[in-house]
Nucleic acid binder design. Structure first.
Lengths: 146, 146
DNA sequence: CTGACTGCAAAATCTTTGCAAAGAC
DNA sequence: GTCTTTGCAAAGATTTTGCAGTCAG
């Protein structure tokens, strides 16, 4: 897994290349996602950041704007979650897919090479230039089956 | 593929079992999805229905309510489409997955047995009771690669 | 300094809800 | 008749935008 200083540098380079500025709000969002290896809604990121760092000045709009920026830069990725918006996670880890529990909302990650290979094959078959792919298995997790 | 009269009967039985009523609004939505074998947003379904049958009385709220009902009954299924809501399609055909073009928005369906099998296997591995699964391959379709 | 970024609040979307009237059974 | 469903408009929820002040480079 990539270390935080390296990730940060990557982000700063990317900003510079696009004449964008490096601000503490942007860093806070990045750092938050790095340190919390889960899936969050923009709202959650906003609330938890405020809670953890009561002194920082950040607005929900900035969280949205930053996430959009990070997603466009392929630094974070998002996953749609039912009717209720998207959840974001750091996107730099090895590609993986998700099991989503409809009852408790838990998201479990997994990686399956057979599926990865098969996806490439399918894209090729359809003359599709694949930029991303995602698989969700929806159901009840072990704990919620009672 | 299931014929419309049979689908309709299935729907009516389902309604009866749950002490729900069979209304023309509900039938219009069902019929629309049967006759238009594509993916639609609630808004699209509403607008197109109004356009095709200027005389019917139906509100957007009813479309939402009907789609929720149909989805809960597993008659239609939905697919999340970027930040902009969900699209619905009749869910009675054989399970299939989607290729989504990020430029023109086209959705291509495909079916791959290898992937279907693999998904079952994974759910089992994680002790997950799978109720649904979905795969999206996102990218540029043949026409949009220029 | 200059131009990008930010927070705020307002606006725009998208979806759900309350309610009185209409409709199914 | 009874109880569900409907359309409407209002309310909610979520996300985006305009703008004047702030900040990075």
């Amino acid at each position: 897994m990539i270390s935080y200083p390296i990730l940060l540098e990557k982000f700063q380079t990317l900003l510079k290349e696009n004449q964008l500025k490096f601000t503490k709000q942007r860093e806070f969002v990045l750092k938050f996602l790095y340190e919390n290896d889960e899936h969050f809604t923009p709202e959650e990121i906003y609330t938890l950041l405020k809670q953890k760092y009561p002194d920082i000045n950040i607005g929900i709009a900035t969280v949205y704007r930053t996430l959009a920026l990070l997603e466009a830069s392929q630094i974070v990725s998002s996953i749609s979650f039912g009717t209720a918006g998207k959840k974001y996670e750091l996107g730099l880890k090895k590609h993986h897919d998700h099991l989503i529990c409809t009852k408790c909302g838990e998201i479990i990650e997994f990686l399956d090479e057979t599926i990865e290979q098969q996806q490439k094959l399918i894209a090729k078959q359809f003359n599709f230039k694949m930029t991303d792919h995602a698989m969700k298995i929806v159901g009840l997790c072990k704990n919620c089956q009672d």
